[in-house]
Design a protein around this nucleic acid. Structure first.
Length: 276
DNA sequence: TCCCAGGCTCTCT
DNA sequence: AGAGAGCATGGG
């Protein structure tokens, strides 16, 4: 397992096994991380800015402290989970093993549920560059200034806006979905935090009360922010990859970790340019 | 120009 | 309950 040392204003995670920042931050589960010319990643989550980079086998977190690490980043990067045990489990299946070998640095992020919900609503029938643009405009227009960027606006703030107010986002037909999600979350009609403690099926059902939230968005929110690691979001790419690799069905051994398998399979399919 | 993007809603059988 | 059109916008 990892251990953390303090180095002036920075933290260093030693022995950060199965943790590659590029794989983790650029595999489509989060939209607000950018990489600079020094290969340093910068992002904002839970109202905190972070600059983070791989250095040898360590991970360096710039300008942060143990309090924020324990309160936010440790869980955000899912550092308490032993991914090597899961990869070991996946070795029982040749294809899952191959996929895990490619994507062994991916970790599932435990993101803020509201931000994740809003982001994946925006993602529907959309492409990655445009998704990122819309989210960035959402933060710039309605978030708070925070270091090198802006925080993600709260559901309470968005709930008071109209579809017209969101025209600056150029999010198209999704604006009405964003408003509906904000209103249901802000009013407590959908209590996102509670959805961590119910079954995946119940979480999906609750999330799908929101207009514009279907099975795929609900599964992404469940996996990337509600700790439902058995969630297996099925987008068009994964469906095709699953048909080619597994004849449509995930092996039994992945039970309980379908979400991690999903990430490995997606990364594998993309990196090997699998003909799908 | 046209096609499509990591879906969903609505409508019509 | 399953299939198909339409959806806003902009990048390739």
């Amino acid at each position: 397992m990892f251990n953390v040392i303090v180095n002036k204003n920075d933290l260093i995670i030693k022995n950060a096994d199965n943790f590659d920042l590029g794989m983790t931050l650029d595999c489509g589960q989060a939209f607000r991380w950018t990489i600079d010319e020094n290969n340093h990643w910068k992002g904002i989550a839970f109202n905190k800015c972070l600059e983070i980079y791989n250095e040898n086998n360590d991970i360096v977190l710039k300008n942060t402290d143990l309090e924020d690490f324990n309160k936010i980043w440790k869980h955000y990067f899912d550092l308490s989970r032993d991914y090597s045990k899961i990869i070991e489990l996946f070795k029982q299946n040749d294809i899952l093993n191959a996929a895990a070998n490619y994507g062994n640095g991916i970790r599932i992020l435990n993101q803020d549920p509201w931000e994740t919900l809003c982001s994946f609503i925006i993602s529907q029938n959309n492409n990655i560059p445009r998704i990122k643009g819309i989210i960035e405009r959402l933060c710039q227009n309605f978030g708070e200034k925070c270091g090198f960027g802006y925080t993600f606006p709260t559901a309470e703030k968005i709930a008071l806006l109209t579809v017209d107010d969101l025209s600056v986002l150029r999010s198209g037909f999704r604006a009405k979905y964003i408003i509906d999600a904000a209103q249901k979350v802000a009013s407590g009609e959908v209590n996102l935090e509670n959805l961590k403690f119910v079954t995946l099926g119940e979480a999906r059902e609750e999330l799908m009360k929101i207009k514009g939230v279907g099975p795929k968005v609900a599964d992404c929110v469940s996996l990337f922010s509600l700790e439902h690691f058995n969630s297996f979001p099925k987008d068009v790419w994964i469906k095709r990859a699953m048909d080619v690799l597994f004849g449509g069905e995930l092996p039994e051994i992945a039970t309980g970790y379908e979400g991690i398998a999903q990430q490995y399979i997606f990364y594998y399919a993309r990196m090997t340019k699998l003909q799908i």
